[in-house]
Design a binder for these strands. Structure first.
Lengths: 124, 124
DNA sequence: ACCCTGTTTTGAAATCTGTCAAGCTAGAGT
DNA sequence: ACTCTAGCTTGACAGATTTCAAAACAGGGT
């Protein structure tokens, strides 16, 4: 359909990248990284991410009741986070457990670093 | 009409916030921060942000030609970055100059910190 | 084998987003 | 005052997102 099979983010392709404040990001890199920020760009997903990142791992059954949203909706948001490469999950018996992928997390943090003292030279 | 007057992000309301990996973010905070991540969640805006952040300030006239997009489209993306509180602009004679708001930037970076040693060591 | 609970998938509706064309506004220079 | 350029706003449209209900799937227990 219109669903275009989001390519699961390949972390190796990203494991590079100086902070975006250091030099302009090229289009290719931006295309890889933007989906990660986008995944965090929804209040529900941001809270989900935060809940997941705050503990070693957490069951969907503990995530869902924290929201006024249907199960399928939460499941959808978790899928977005998974496809962005930010979290991992596995089923253990009846329940599905989610945990953060620290590399991805670190990645994003590194991109936002204000590395050095901002140059005062001209922008020309 | 469907445009719902995005509330310009109030940085003071955000100037707090432990990293999202430390404790679950509440709904209110998520509602304030998510728009910032969302603003970075588009490849074009991420590149714009990166171009702006790489120099003390930069003219729109130097941003536009870096993309295969119309002027209005770039203008629209810049507006999103502005309303997210990530950049500031002002007109100086003929040209409009953009610069990053370092507080906002720092904010986001801080949120993504993996503060302490995580409980597990997994990452299998 | 059957049912029950937890989670994901599918399908559909309402809303939002990214983009461009056309028109508008702000300064600068003549 | 007129005109030129740089940038923004409006209006419109195709495509994406968010959400739920219904249905499917996965394990566990009876």
């Amino acid at each position: 359909m219109s669903k275009q099979e989001l390519p699961v983010v390949d972390l190796n392709a990203v494991a590079c990248c100086s902070p975006i404040a250091v030099r302009p990001m090229d289009a290719e890199q931006a295309g890889v990284v933007a989906p990660m920020f986008k995944a965090l760009g929804d209040p529900v997903r941001l809270r989900l991410m935060s809940m997941i990142a705050s503990v070693p791992e957490i069951c969907v059954c503990d995530l869902t009741p924290a929201f006024d949203l249907s199960g399928p909706t939460i499941s959808h948001h978790l899928k977005v986070l998974r496809e962005a490469g930010l979290v991992d999950s596995d089923r253990r018996g009846t329940w599905v457990w989610y945990r953060v992928k620290p590399e991805a997390f670190r990645q994003l943090g590194a991109l936002l670093e204000i590395s050095a003292a901002p140059a005062t030279g001209s922008a020309a």
